[in-house]
Amino acid sequence: MSKIDNEATKIAVPVLIPARGKLPSVKRLGGWHAIGPIVIFLAILVVVAILTPAFIGGGGLAIIASSSAPILLLALGQAMVLNVGSIDLSNAAIGLLGAILLALTLGPVAGLSPLIVLLATTAFGAVNGLILAYAQVPSFALTLGTLGIFQAIALVASGRTTVYVSSNGESVRSLYESGIANVPMTFWMGVLLAVALWVLLRYTRIGRGMTAIGKNESAAIFSAVRTRSLKVLAFALSGFAAGLAGIAIIAQAGSASPTGLGSDLLLPAIAAALIGGTSISGGVVNPLTVIFGALTVALVPIATTAVGIDAQAQSLVYGAVIIAVVALTMSRNKSSIVK
């Protein structure tokens, strides 16, 4: 099921040739997708700073950075999946399941526990990818189904209650308590992952292949790109990033609850990836700008309160933001068919 049928035209138009009479500056910088996220973040930050001056003085930026860590990690995974033209609705649930597994296993196996969790979440992601690549089913329906399965595993594993770290929690907690420039390590973990993914996408054959799939899957197949294994890899990376998000949740809170079921993080993470300049139809992504996407999303609750919108309206704002960002940034033409 192809969502838009204009991939061919998208590639055929050389991006770097500016139309006569138009200012080329924005395009030379890499277009909206490169500077947009930073501009949006700074604009909202300025509004917040003017309305509540105490916020910036009181170390508000560090607070935003630390609260954005799980969203950033999930958004990076989501961005990798969006880049191959799919969507992963299950990654927040995988992250939460990872957090619960970590809380349960830290006591018995100590240092091995994060490793086990990362292996498990990567495997969960890979299973999504394998079914998608070999059964050729639409990703939103598939991951909606696996979302239910991961939810149930989380409920059963935790016994429907909040799971606390029993012992050996110090090492994981230090990820949140220690930091660089007053910002916890969990956030820098996200930045590190973003840089690694940026290098992967820009300089390796694997990364170029993934972007090629997102731009035009048929063309990628004809160009001998190993589309199946790369899609599996994209979903596995999403699972891996979700596992890191789970570790960040435990580092921050010391406990994980199976209710809410990660849906609290699903939409913010998708919003962060989209505000970060990731295209919903695939083929356009920059992990580095996703960092600003995540910071913007973490800023939204603070900004809405500053502007005077009820804090309860948060989910409404996230929903509206997602629709607006996709509406503003989608490339479309008159004859294309959107489903």
Binding site: K3, I4, I87, F140, L267, I270, I280, S281, Y318, G319, A320, V321, I322, I323, V326, A327, M330, R332, S336, V338, K339
Partner: peptide, 11 residues
């Protein structure tokens, strides 16, 4: 606006 339906309705 030609936004894919799964995104509109997710929002």
């Amino acid at each position: 606006l030609k936004v894919p339906s799964f995104i509109v309705t997710l929002g």
